[in-house]
Design a protein around this nucleic acid. Structure first.
Length: 533
RNA sequence: GCCGCCUUAGCUCAGUUGGUUAGAGCGCUGGAUUGUGGAUCCAGAGGUCCCCUGUUCAAGCCAGGGAGGCGGUACCA
């Protein structure tokens, strides 16, 4: 009965996990990227832009299962031709492409090679709150430098970068740790056998992930994960590592490192401690940076005990801390934090993470922490895949979208709506050329301006349009004005201001509108713009 | 992946015990008006009531299944 002649319309929507960026989303971001690139460049890093698409082998992924959504990456086969085509994929980070580029051009590139890169990366994962399938990263890496001086430099640069984009000192901290220290702890806890590295791999993963969660779950939650497992409020159960009592004690001693060292300091220097005994009471740390560092290193040395790799790690950590301290980067900017873990099968030495420490109130009135906005570390095995030779490398990656969101929340970026163009309205279609000349004059004077290009019959709509564009000024000229060689200039910002307190009639009197000579148009508009700040 | 809530116009949402042609506000387009933006009036366009199956004379509403969204949680190079 009902006629099915209707064809379903396409749905106008962004694909899941993707976003559209409007106006200031784009300009704010490119401004921030320019600030970051400025610091990277000043530190001697060269710009590098690589292709968005890589071969799957170069990215280090196995052939994706065709039936399943490609194991986290957007991948496809180039030709359908009897499985002959290469598998390609969108890059999922900027480090794997760097390894490829360095391996490919190593004869021409200087060693060490220092480069920075920025751009979108893609991950084919289920999107969640604040997690998208396309997002921006901004990386700097040093390839071919084994010295921990390279790691220390990255940490210092990360600190400088955050301040350069507008994160105040004290509103962030760069936390430094070392994977070798973690491995030392694993050895002591009996979940890492130096003679059989693959043994206990499963348990190690659980333990490392548990340590990483101490900020959120607290020591008790971590202890649960080390033993049988943990059931969260939503009813989900997470399998634990099944460690015995002694093992748990060793790991928990490590997890509690910061708390214990700080507590010690508070006991020894009560006058410099804050009111609170909380583990994040950092006043005493700031007052005694060297004590903090030395005691932390001693504490870690004791925990890793006889483990060779563990002692190596502590030594590296000590060296980095020393280098940074001598350059004046104290614990208010960069400090040792043993709970930093980062990616599991990736980093081989120093690891670091930049965390924002200020709280914001979200739209539901809850306190929220921004958490980690950048991370990095040493990955000495990445280039080896291509060349067979060990090439040490270290670097950092900034999560651009998150950092930008943080700056917005802080009011350091955005805030006010971007100003729109001056709108020249159209009274008389036949005089379009005159209107366009006015616009050209304004543009030549460096003023953003445009002629209204919609239906000019409804004059009110033209001003509504100017309003929606957040235009500072509208220019109005009809037959009367042209006869007299004048134009009307309407200060829209002032008009809106007046409208707040004035009655409709007062406002309709147009106190914000002036008649000026056509020849003075540019000068008068300039004056208004200047007055509006 | 697991747990909970949700899904009706571009947006925010009404929709009676299951009963004709599914509504409102905002927005959009046009007009009483070819000279004035917040806040005049009138009209118009815009719908797979998330999808499928079932119950019923009759389903936006009831039942079963599925999908999508949101919030937690897990994983994350």
């Amino acid at each position: 009965m009902a006629k099915d002649t209707k064809t379903p319309r396409p749905k106008a929507e962004t694909p899941k996990g993707f976003r559209d960026y409007f106006g200031s989303d784009v300009t704010d971001r490119s401004q921030m990227l320019a600030q970051i690139a400025g610091v990277y460049h000043r530190y001697g890093f060269d710009a590098l832009e690589t292709s968005a698409v890589e071969t799957v082998e170069a990215l280090g992924k196995f052939l994706p299962d065709v039936d399943r959504p490609n194991e986290g990456v957007f991948a496809w086969q180039e030709f359908d031709d009897k499985d002959k085509g290469d598998w390609l994929a969108l890059r999922y980070d900027l480090t794997a492409p760097l390894a490829r580029v360095y391996a490919q051009h190593r004869n021409d590139l200087p060693t060490p090679y220092r480069r920075y890169a920025m751009g979108p990366v893609w991950r084919n994962e289920k999107p969640g709150p604040g997690r998208f399938r396309q997002f921006y990263q901004c990386d700097a890496d040093t390839v071919g430098a084994a010295s921990v001086a390279a790691d220390a430099e990255i940490c210092a640069m990360l600190s400088d970068t955050l301040e350069a984009v507008g994160i105040a000192r004290g509103d962030y901290v760069v936390k430094v740790n070392n994977r070798k220290v973690l491995n030392g702890v694993m050895e002591m806890a009996g979940v890492l056998d130096p003679n059989d590295p693959d043994r206990f791999k499963e348990e190690r993963g659980i333990v490392l992930r548990a340590i990483d969660k101490v900020d959120r779950l607290g020591p008790y939650g971590v202890a649960q994960l080390l033993q049988a497992g943990r059931r969260d409020e939503s009813g989900d159960f997470t399998e634990g590592a099944g460690l015995g009592r002694e093992q748990v004690e060793i790991v928990m001693g490590f997890v509690a490192a910061t708390t214990r060292v700080v507590t010690q300091l508070v006991e020894d220097f009560p006058d410099d401690a804050g009111d609170s005994w909380a583990p994040d009471n950092l006043r005493v740390v700031m007052a005694h940076p060297h004590e903090f560092k030395d005691r932390m290193l001693t504490y870690l040395r004791n925990i890793v005990g006889a483990s060779k790799v563990g002692q190596d790690g502590v030594a590296e950590l000590s060296e980095i801390a020393e280098l940074l301290n001598l350059q004046g980067y104290g614990p208010e900017r960069i400090r040792i934090d043993p709970s930093v873990v980062r990616g599991l099968g990736y980093y081989t030495g120093p690891v670091f993470e930049a965390e924002l420490t200020f709280e914001i109130i979200d739209d539901k009135g809850r306190k929220q922490q921004f958490g980690s906005v950048a991370g990095g570390g040493r990955y000495d095995d990445l280039v080896k895949r291509f060349t067979g030779q060990e090439v040490p490398a270290t670097g950092v990656s900034i999560g651009v979208d998150r950092l930008l969101a943080a700056l917005r929340a802080k009011g350091r970026v955005g805030g006010q709506v971007a100003p729109g163009p001056v709108v020249v309205t159209v009274m008389d279609r036949a005089r379009m050329a005159d209107y366009q000349t006015m616009v050209a004059d304004l543009r030549n004077a460096g003023i953003r301006a445009e002629v209204y290009l919609g239906n000019p019959k409804q004059f009110g709509n033209q001003l509504k349009y100017a309003d929606k564009r957040n235009s500072p000024v509208a220019v109005i000229a009809g037959g009367d004005e042209f006869d007299k060689g004048v134009v009307q200039i309407k200060d829209l910002i002032l008009g809106a201001e007046i409208a707040k307190n004035a009655s409709l009639d007062e406002w309709k009197d147009r106190p914000s509108q002036y008649e000026v000579l056509r020849d003075d148009l540019v000068a008068r508009v300039q004056a208004i713009l200047k007055g509006q700040g």
